[in-house]
Simulated scan of single mutants.
Amino acid sequence: MLTILDKYILKRYLATFVTMLAMFVPIGIIVDVSEKINFMIENKVPFLKIAVYYYHFTIYFANNLFPIFLFLSIIWFTSKLANNTEIIAILSSGISFTRFLRPYIIGATLVSIFVLIMGFFVVPVSSEGFNNFRYTYLRTNGQQAMRGDNTDVYRQINDTDFLYVNSYNASSKTAFNFSLEKFDKDKMVSKITASRIQWNPADSTYTMYDYKKRTVGALGDVIVREPEKKTKFGFELEDLTPVIYIAETLTLDKLTAFIDKERARGSSNINIYMVVLYKKFSVPISAFILTIIAVSVSAMKRRGGMGMNLTIGIAIAFGFVFFDKVFGVIAEKTTFSPFIAVWFPNFIFGILAIFLLRNAKR
């Protein structure tokens, strides 16, 4: 049963968090518009598509920076409580610091559940919309504005087949400079190339343009050319998608199935997918850790007032994000365990939370 005190703090917790989001998301949109307005004008992007893009951008942006927003919002309103001597009055009434934390933990639970559900089902859809817009419209002189994010997709389909595309257009479901090589042990058996290959969702086929197939023979190679050829392949559309954001666009059930398939193929990119999967669970847990740290830091009335608490809070928040990003990249680029990389920041800052909480109780 929630008391008046619990309701009061919980209301402030959630209201300040929502207010912080409402303040910083528009700033993020303005910065993004200023960076991309030239590409949008150059490519004559329809206003409706821009509006849909910024809907997806809002969810994508808020999800990525939610730990910072949550952390700063807790420090903000808890510092105000401390400066108004409300916390001193609460603790002087006989309420322990642990009991004082209860509405904060309830708030963290609500936020964690919300972020968990969003991460499982909503954020992947917005991530796909966000990335599709970038890779479709943000071009300059025919070249991708963010080249490298959507080029040179090379993937092993099975034990014998290797696929390569130079670039991929998510909006038209088209890949360019396509090749599919088949090997028997170390010897190439055949190679199919096309200037572009397009997915046909109506019948689950692919249409290749400037088709060429070379079959390697003992007495000579056989080459077949066709201006256009429609056929089925054993690979799926997502195999043409750039590695960097495949996992981000998949809901939890599809992501786990995709990881199982890629692991069976012996994919070299499995760590990238595992980092995305583990983060779906680690980010919500960070809400509890950051809540405890924020309350422990800001519950004391300091000589520098709220400004000092915010300074300490910003340093800790960006330290958390720094560790999270650095270890994520290490796991993606090396053989370092994705599980350890994703959970290590929570472990380190969890220890810091325990230390600060014990200090705050004293």
Rank of each mutant, 00 (worst) to 15 (best):
F120M: 13
V326K: 11
Y164Q: 04
S127T: 15
A82H: 02
R12E: 02
N346T: 05
K254W: 06
F349K: 08
Y53I: 13
S79L: 14
I197Q: 02
V329D: 04
T334W: 07
V321S: 09
A145N: 10
V189W: 07
E86A: 00
I330Q: 07
G266F: 01
N359P: 03
K333L: 03
I197R: 01
F288T: 07
V189Y: 10
S167Q: 12
V52K: 13
S195I: 11
V224I: 10
N177F: 03
V122Q: 03
E86W: 00
E181H: 07
E86M: 00
T291I: 09
L2Q: 15
R225W: 08
K44A: 14
R265N: 09
I59H: 06
M23A: 12
L2V: 09
V243Q: 07
L237S: 11
T136W: 03
Q144R: 11
S195T: 13
S127M: 13
F47R: 11
F233L: 13
K212R: 05
D32V: 00
K173A: 15
M20F: 03
I30C: 02
A247Q: 12
N64V: 10
A353N: 02
T335I: 14
F323C: 07
P26N: 11
Q156G: 15
F61L: 01
R358C: 02
K173R: 14
I192W: 04
I50E: 13
N150I: 07
F320A: 06
P242V: 05
F133G: 14
T98Q: 08
K301C: 05
G129Q: 13
K361E: 10
V122L: 09
L252D: 13
F133W: 15
V295G: 10
V33D: 06
D239V: 08
N132F: 03
V189F: 08
Y206T: 05
F66T: 05
N359I: 02
W343N: 04
E86K: 00
V25H: 05
T98C: 06
T109R: 11
K333T: 04
Y278L: 05
E35T: 12
N43S: 05
R265H: 11
F322E: 13
D239Q: 07
T193L: 05
R155A: 12
I29P: 01
A170M: 01
S190G: 03
F24R: 01
L101R: 01
L240Q: 14
E226H: 00
T140Q: 15
K185N: 11
I90D: 03
D221C: 13
E181A: 08
Y245T: 13
K254E: 12
R196M: 03
N38Y: 01
N83F: 03
R303P: 15
K254D: 12
T249S: 10
F69D: 01
V342Y: 01
